[in-house]
């Protein structure tokens, strides 16, 4: 049976098991009292791992993949995100 050749990939988006969260030194933590759900953090997340599911829902960060660059904390207009040092596992 001819096997798949030429480096072709038929199964896209299969990098999800690469948990890049392990790259992190600092972890963004949202203070939901300060957060006004404006989604600036989500827009500027280079990994696309900061979400707001519905308009009134809380912002969620997917720590499995967040690399801890700190852009969200720096850009947050209400200073609702703090970068906290990760503890050694």
């Amino acid at each position: 049976m001819p096997e798949l050749r030429g480096g072709v990939i038929h199964n896209l988006g299969n990098t999800l098991f690469m948990k890049t969260g392990s790259w992190r030194t600092f972890k963004p933590v949202i203070d939901h009292d300060k957060c006004n759900r404006c989604i600036v953090c989500s827009d500027y997340c280079t990994e696309g791992v900061v979400y707001r599911k519905g308009k009134e829902e809380k912002i969620v960060i997917d720590y499995d993949y967040c690399k801890g660059c700190g852009i969200c904390a720096h850009e947050c207009p209400t200073d609702a995100i703090e970068m906290v040092r990760e503890e050694m596992p």
Binding site: H10, N11, L12, G13, N14, T15, L16, F17, M18, K19, T20, W23, T46, E47, G48, V49, D62, D64, Y65, K67, G68, C69, G70, I71
Partner: peptide, 20 residues
């Protein structure tokens, strides 16, 4: 195709540097 039915066109798990 289950893989491209829905969701973002670029999924996490990329090799790109932090803050790219």
């Amino acid at each position: 195709r289950e893989d491209v039915k829905e969701g973002s066109l670029v999924v996490p798990g990329t090799n790109i540097c932090q803050g790219c």
